[in-house]
């Protein structure tokens, strides 16, 4: 005789519990944590290189890199004198909270003002996993096409910030910034949309100003609660 047990539990409850623990830890250390998500090759690491270089005066940054294989990305960040830990997922298409806990144990990343988590290059799976971050950032390069926000809406609807990257290549590709702005707004009216080029440095100031403003906000609210 078969029996039915009512469960009614979140499938990812264990992972969500870990994310809550991480969020508390980051609140205590006063660290702004940013989960960066994009397709492979959209320029996440280049954006991070420009970012940590710009923030280095006056702020301590740390980076967790997620990739299927190789230490390449972490090496690029370490070359700038910034502590970085490489998570190798061995085939998995996203990072989860357990891997962030492990990374914090394995490398001396905290205390830090900013912790950047560069997720595995993928616009789908990383969207579903909470890493204890303050907000998600989507990076969309102009070479990917301006229809990406409609084809992969979940990440663009959830990301508090979308960075349109490689805008120095705009003259060479069919990518309509106004159309993308409109599409992004229809998915996520409250999102901040920035434009950047890691090559020319355009837009990096505005992005770093946003980060430092969010850090100030977070520390103010952590103190008041």
């Amino acid at each position: 005789m078969s029996r039915v047990v009512t469960v009614r539990r979140r499938a990812l409850e264990a992972s969500e519990e870990r994310a809550r623990g991480l969020r508390e830890r980051f609140a205590q250390s006063g660290t702004l944590v940013v989960n960066i998500i994009s397709s492979p090759g959209s320029g996440k690491t280049s954006l991070l290189e420009a970012t940590v270089t710009r923030l280095a005066a006056g702020h301590r940054c740390a980076v967790i890199e997620g990739d299927v294989a190789t230490e390449r990305d972490a090496d690029r960040i370490r070359a700038l004198g910034v502590p970085a830990h490489q998570v190798l997922t061995g085939g998995a298409c996203h990072l989860d909270a357990r891997q962030i806990e492990t990374a914090l144990g394995a490398a001396r990343l905290l205390p830090a003002d900013f912790l950047f988590i560069e997720n595995v290059g993928n616009l789908i799976c990383p969207t579903a996993y909470d890493l204890g971050e303050d907000f998600k950032v989507a990076v969309l390069s102009v070479t990917e096409g301006d229809d990406k926000p409609f084809k992969y809406p979940a990440i663009f609807a959830r990301a508090a910030v979308t960075v349109i990257s490689k805008i120095d290549l705009l003259p060479h590709v069919p990518f309509d910034l106004a159309v993308v702005d409109e599409r992004l707004r229809s998915l996520n009216p409250s999102a901040t949309i920035l434009r950047s080029s890691a090559t020319t440095g355009e837009g990096i100031d505005a992005w770093c100003e946003l980060l430092t403003a969010r850090l100030t906000e977070k520390r103010r609210s952590c103190v008041s609660t």
Binding site: M1, R3, V4, V5, R9, A11, P189
Partner: peptide
């Protein structure tokens, strides 16, 4: 106007049927 979006983020185990 911005829409009010509710629900749709479920990822829940509802029940399990098993043979003891």
């Amino acid at each position: 106007l911005p829409l009010d979006v509710t629900g749709g983020d479920e990822l829940d185990v509802l029940d399990v049927t098993f043979t003891p």
